[in-house]
Nucleic acid binder design. Structure first.
Lengths: 348, 348
DNA sequence: CTGAAAGCGCTTACAG
DNA sequence: CTGAAAGCGCTTACAG
C-alpha cells in the first residue's frame, strides 16, 4: 500500500475531490450537495449558496461513473453504423452527436463494417455498458442481440434499415419510391436501355432499390437489367467496366448508392465515356462531390439532418418514457437533377 | 414503491442478474466469480468450472458501470475531432475505433466544429466521465482544459496539430515540408505564378502550410501570393473565384486542404477553366474523390491509418504506464501525382 | 487458493 | 427542507 502510494506520487493524479469534501466544507450533508447539483428538491437559499461556493472553491466535478452506478443509468447513447467513412453515416453521426451532447448525453461510436459478427459483439458491449439507448443502422436486422437489448430495457432506434423486432422504432427511407423515381426520370428522358448497378444483396436497402427499379422498368414494358454489385467503389468500377464492354451496353445507369457512383465514374473514365451523352447516370444517395464532378451528378438525396433528428427524438421519447408504442417513420428522397442525366444520343 | 414496481412490470427490464446471483448458484464467493471472470489469480479448476457454468446458465454479464466505479477506471477513450464529416477525420475515427474495440476499449466521439468553446466543454465532459485517455485534434492547442486532464491523470495524445502542454504526446504531419514539396512540384513544372489558397488562419496546420509555400517561393525568388481562406469548400469557391477574376491570375494553385480543393474546382467550373492547362492544382490532403474528378487531382496524402495506429499506441503506452516521457512523432505526406498538375501553357 | 468485508463516489428513499 | 444511512454492483486488499 505504501509502495503504491509512493509510485502514485511520482506520476500522477492528485486525489480527486469528492462530494464528501464539498459537504464538509459547506457544512451540509452529501444529500444536500447532491440535491443542489442536480437541481433536485428545494434547498434553502443559504444552504444552496454555501454548497455552490464550496463547489467553486474546491473546483468539484462529480464522478460520472459513480453517478451512473448510483442512478442505475448512464448518459451514454450507443451509435452503431455500418461504415463511418461513408459520408451518409458520418453526417448522421455528426448530427446525432450534436444534439446528444447539447442535451447532456454522450455517444459511443461503433463501426460494424457490414459485418454481422461485429454488430453482435458491439451490441453486447453496449449492453454491458448499460447504455441509455441505441441508434443503429443494422447490418443484420434480425440480430437476436437487438431483441436482447430491448428486453433489457435499452430502447433501440433503427435508421436506414429495418429491424425484425417490432418493438424497435424505425426511421427508414422510401427506397422503392426513390429507385422508381430515378428510373422514371431516365425513362422520361427517352432512355430504354437502363441498367441498375446493385448494392450488397444482403442489405435490404439494396434489395428495395433494385425492386423499385424493376417495378419501373416492368411498368414501362422494358426488360430490367441489373449488375450485381456491392456498396463499394472498386467492385462497382469493375462491374460497370464489364457491363460497358458487353455487346449492347446500356445508355443509362441507376446506381444503388453514392459511393458506388464513384466506381461507376471511374469505369466510365477507364472506358473513355462521358456523361450524359455516352451514358446517363443517376445515383441514389448524395455524395459530397456530386457538384464538382464533370458533369455534376444527378442524385436522389436523403434528408440526413432530418433523419438524425427524428432518430434522436424517437430515442429520447423512449428514454424519458413518453411513449410505449413503436413508431416507424418513412422519409422520401429529394431529386437533385444535375448534368449527368439527359436524353440518349438517338433521341438527341 | 409497489406502484412503481407495477409500472415496471408493464414496460420493461426483468431484474438483471448480478454477481451475487452467480456466486450463490456456483456456491462460491463473489470474489471468486470476479477472479474467474477477470482472469485474475489462480482459481482451482473445479471452482472455475462451477463459476463458468453458473455464468452460462444465468447468462450473466457484468455491469460496466459497477466495474468502472470499483476499478476506479473506465475502459473508454475520448476522441475529439474538429470535423467528423471531413474524410480525414472520419478515417481517423474509424481506424481508432477499430483498434480500440479490438482491445476492449470503447470510444466516445466529440465533434468540436473548430469551436474552442465546444472543445472546452467536451474536454470537461470527458474528464467528468473519467475517460482512460483522450485523442484529440485540437482546435485550441493551448486550451487549459488539456492540462487539467493531464493533471487529473488522463493522458492526452494530440494528432494533426500540436498542443501547448509538453506532457501530451503528439503525432503531427510535417506540413511545412509538404507545402514546400507541393510548391516545388509546380516550380519544377515551370510555373511561376503560383498562388496559395490558405486555410483557417487560426489553425496551425494552415499556418505551417502557408509558411512552407512561402519558403519555397522565396527560395525560388518569386513573390508569394496567398488567398486568405478557410477550411471550407464554399468559402474557398468564393475566394478562388475572386482570385481568378484578378488582372494577373496565377497559373497554378496550392490548396491548403482537401475539402477546399472541392471549392477550388467549383470556382474553376464557374469560370470555365480546366486543369491543368488553365490552372494547375495541387492539394495538401487526399479527398476520397481525388481520382474521379477530371482530371484526377494531384495531392499530398497523409498516412491516415499509420497516424491512427501511432496515436493509439502512444495512448495505450501511457494508460498501461509503460512510458513517462512525452513523445512527438512527425510523419511525412506522400506525393500522389495525378492529372491536375502539368506545365503552364507558355512552356507547353 | 478462497472468502468476508470494505470500498469505489455517488443518489435516494426514509424519517424527521 | 435536511440528514443519516442504505444501496448501486462490482473489485480488491486482507486474513486465513
Amino acid at each position: 500500500m505504501q509502495e503504491s502510494a509512493f509510485t502514485d506520487r511520482r506520476t500522477a493524479a492528485p486525489p480527486r475531490v469528492r462530494i464528501a469534501d464539498v459537504a464538509r466544507r459547506a457544512a451540509v450533508s452529501q444529500a444536500t450537495v447532491s440535491r443542489v447539483l442536480n437541481g433536485d428538491g428545494r434547498v434553502h437559499a443559504d444552504l444552496r449558496e454555501r454548497v455552490l461556493q464550496a463547489v467553486a472553491e474546491l473546483d468539484y466535478r462529480p464522478s460520472g461513473p459513480a453517478r451512473n452506478l448510483a442512478r442505475q443509468r448512464t448518459n451514454t447513447i450507443g451509435m452503431v453504423v455500418a461504415d463511418i467513412e461513408h459520408p451518409y453515416f458520418s453526417q448522421m453521426v455528426r448530427a446525432v452527436e450534436d444534439t446528444a451532447y447539447a442535451q447532456g448525453y454522450r455517444v459511443l461510436i461503433c463501426n460494424t463494417d457490414e459485418n454481422p459478427d461485429k454488430q453482435r459483439s458491439y451490441l453486447l458491449a453496449l449492453e454491458d455498458e448499460r447504455v441509455l439507448g441505441i441508434i443503429i443502422s443494422p447490418t443484420d436486422g434480425a440480430d437476436a442481440e437487438i431483441s436482447r437489448a430491448i428486453d433489457g430495457g435499452i430502447p433501440v432506434v433503427a435508421f436506414d434499415r429495418r429491424v425484425a423486432d417490432e418493438r424497435a422504432d424505425v426511421v427508414i427511407p422510401d427506397n422503392l419510391t426513390a429507385a422508381r423515381a430515378a428510373t422514371g426520370l431516365l425513362l422520361d428522358e427517352g432512355h430504354h436501355a437502363i441498367a441498375f448497378v446493385a448494392g450488397t444483396p444482403r442489405v435490404e436497402t439494396a434489395a428495395e432499390r433494385l425492386a423499385g427499379y424493376e417495378v419501373a422498368m416492368t411498368a414501362a414494358d422494358l426488360e430490367p437489367r441489373s449488375v450485381p454489385g456491392q456498396f463499394d467503389a472498386d467492385v462497382t468500377r469493375h462491374a460497370v467496366g464489364e457491363l460497358l464492354r458487353e455487346p449492347n451496353p446500356p445508355s443509362a445507369l441507376v446506381i444503388a448508392s453514392s459511393p458506388m457512383a464513384l466506381g461507376a465514374l471511374q469505369a466510365m473514365r477507364d472506358a473513355g465515356l462521358h456523361a450524359p451523352h455516352d451514358l446517363a447516370l443517376v445515383s441514389i444517395g448524395e455524395p459530397p462531390w456530386a457538384e464538382i464532378v464533370d458533369p455534376p451528378l444527378t442524385t436522389l438525396a436523403p434528408p440526413v439532418r432530418l433523419i438524425a433528428h427524428e432518430a434522436m427524438e424517437l430515442l429520447l421519447e423512449r428514454v424519458t418514457g413518453q411513449r410505449e408504442q413503436a413508431r416507424r417513420i418513412v422519409h422520401q428522397f429529394e431529386l437533385r437533377r444535375r448534368g449527368s442525366t439527359g436524353p440518349p444520343p438517338a433521341s438527341a
